[in-house]
Measured scan of single mutants.
Amino acid sequence: MEVRTIKVFTTVDNINLHTQVVDMSMTYGQQFGPTYLDGADVTKIKPHNSHEGKTFYVLPNDDTLRVEAFEYYHTTDPSFLGRYMSALNHTKKWKYPQVNGLTSIKWADNNCYLATALLTLQQIELKFNPPALQDAYYRARAGEAANFCALILAYCNKTVGELGDVRETMSYLFQHANLDSCKRVLNVVCKTCGQQQTTLKGVEAVMYMGTLSYEQFKKGVQIPCTCGKQATKYLVQQESPFVMMSAPPAQYELKHGTFTCASEYTGNYQCGHYKHITSKETLYCIDGALLTKSSEYKGPITDVFYKENSYTTTIK
């Protein structure tokens, strides 16, 4: 009895394709271990004539594949690729409408935090270190965002349907971005203890939790000093293409032309909904596939993004 075979390709990165001759009487799992086709788990399936010449994702289970996976995804987590594939199996079914010149995501599976993050990423200057993220990001900007969303979920250790947080998501993504040249110098002034300067680099240099107003941050924000008295913390120097200011959701007025974009969060910790506000020729609110415009805006804002380049204080 002759062994019926077909020729397929296996890959971990969709760049390096490895030619395989597979036995049609055995499952993919018996031949390769966990195997995925377009995100779908085909591990328990036997090869079919229609699979001839198709590319299958496999887990990096030998040295060659491990090197290829690390170079593309910059992670050695053995569960990463499987999590990416199972997320992709959902995100490829989502709709990605162009809204006001940006790629958004039609609401499904509690994905409003991903839509808000995706919209924000198209408006701030950011370059990702893992080629996987950078490639998928370019495709997302062009309207094909399924891979990018699935990668975000995998890097953030999230599953489809789980509630997510924009600030946490951005923080994970910033860790995989090139923020080497970003720098922030802060000064804390206390009447009792004097003053202390701190220099922050990388992710810490672009994120701040405690106030939404970048102007206020430049002037000074009140913080408790270690001595128990009130101290003032203010920005001395900022070198970065953008800054992200966050605070627990509270009524906040966004003035046209003073910011790049913002995240609105309605609801409580267990259950809520994100919308995205962007400042173009007027203010726009993007909620999944829905767009509304207004000249002014007041609502429960939790993150505001500002364009920056270089700032030095005039406070002496």
Rank of each mutant, 00 (worst) to 15 (best):
F148Y: 02
T91M: 02
V8Y: 06
G194T: 02
N16S: 08
E239S: 10
N178G: 07
Q175P: 10
T302R: 00
V12I: 11
T11I: 08
K275W: 00
Y269E: 15
M26Y: 12
D38Q: 12
K298Q: 08
Y137C: 07
Y113H: 06
V8G: 05
E168R: 12
N178H: 08
Q197F: 09
K158F: 03
L17C: 08
N129R: 15
Q270A: 15
E68Y: 05
I45W: 12
T11H: 08
L151G: 02
Y172S: 13
N111W: 03
K7D: 11
Q197T: 15
C261S: 02
L235Q: 00
M207E: 05
F259H: 01
K218A: 06
A154K: 00
S294N: 10
T226Q: 13
K275M: 07
K44N: 14
T211G: 08
M26S: 12
A69W: 06
Y57L: 09
A69S: 10
Y72V: 06
T120K: 04
N61I: 14
E71D: 14
G164S: 04
T199P: 03
Y73A: 04
N187C: 14
G202E: 06
L119K: 02
M244Q: 00
V22Y: 02
T232P: 01
V203R: 13
A146F: 05
K201D: 07
G299S: 04
L126H: 03
M209P: 02
L186Q: 13
C225H: 08
A146R: 05
S50K: 12
V236S: 06
T5K: 12
T192Y: 10
Y297G: 02
K127D: 11
A231H: 02
D287L: 00
V58R: 07
F70N: 08
T292W: 07
Y57D: 06
Y28V: 04
Y36Q: 05
S50D: 13
Q195N: 13
Q20L: 08
Q123T: 06
N268Q: 14
E144H: 11
T64V: 14
Y252I: 14
Q98V: 14
I152C: 07
C193Q: 03
R167K: 07
Y36N: 05
S294F: 13
V58F: 05
K46N: 14
K183A: 06
E144P: 03
M85P: 04
Y84I: 06
K44A: 15
T199M: 10
G33T: 04
R83K: 13
M26H: 12
T11P: 05
Y311A: 08
